[in-house]
Design a protein around this nucleic acid. Structure first.
Length: 226
DNA sequence: GCCAACGTTGGC
DNA sequence: GCCAACGTTGGC
């Protein structure tokens, strides 16, 4: 899959409109995954939201260090997001169906962890929220974009993006190494991170989290780093 | 529709 | 920079 990064919001004026997410407190992520996972559905199956207002939780990977792809720097760190107008950016460049389907399942105000990948210190740097639901990713039509997709047609776009806004940086950086320690421990203790997608769906750039996973990770910022 | 070859992701 | 994991492609 393509990279997760995104790039500026400038090109796409974020707007807001709204709705709320859903999520039942049971296995959400699993059921959500089941709904969303492999379908290539094109139409925006308008949200399967039974009128609940439960939120979904996500993890979105981005590369905080410079790397050129087709001559274009794909770097996008939490500091880059912070520097954007309204601290908002569009999340372009996702070129994997499963990740795309998650993007399309995101609802306004859903929260996501902002994850730094492919870098010196991988891990969760901050919290963002969805401020614009899925709409076509314009970079798929741009020949000079590293994410140009000649097979995608304007009247039937393949790839989508959302806009995210910084909520805040976490009080401390939560490294992949730390999360992995918990993941390993939880596999035997039946703890909240035992099935975390970061470890079980290694290469997925957009992942969904259960409420338990989200809450557990968020509470880690209050503790000392291991 | 199988599956080998190939390309990408991303930690280390 | 290496390379394991795993998604995608395309021949058959």
């Amino acid at each position: 899959m393509p990279r997760p990064w995104k790039r500026l919001a400038g090109t796409s004026g974020p707007d807001k409109k709204g709705l709320s997410g859903k999520r039942t407190k049971t296995e959400n992520s699993n059921e959500l995954s089941a709904l969303v996972e492999n379908s290539n559905a094109q139409t925006t199956s308008d949200s399967k939201n039974h009128g609940q207002n439960l939120s979904n939780y996500w993890l979105m990977k981005t590369e905080p260090e410079s790397r050129l792809e087709k001559g274009v720097d794909v770097k996008f760190s939490i500091e880059d997001l912070k520097a954007e107008p309204e601290q908002t950016a569009c999340w372009d460049g996702v070129r994997n169906y499963q990740a795309r389907n998650f993007l399309r399942a995101m609802k306004l105000e859903d929260e996501a962890f902002f994850y730094h990948s492919n870098c010196k210190e991988p891990g969760i740097a901050g919290l963002v929220k969805i401020v614009k639901e899925a709409y076509p990713d314009h970079t798929q039509f741009e020949k000079n974009s590293p994410h140009y997709d000649p097979s995608s047609k304007k009247d039937n776009p393949k790839w989508f993006m959302v806009d995210v806004q910084l909520v805040r940086k976490l009080k401390r950086f939560i490294s992949l190494a730390e999360l992995k320690t918990y993941h390993q421990a939880h596999k035997t203790s039946d703890g909240p991170l035992k099935n975390m997608a970061l470890f079980t769906r290694q290469r997925l750039s957009i992942q969904s989290l259960t409420q338990e996973e989200f809450d557990f990770i968020l509470h880690l910022e209050e503790k000392e780093a291991n």
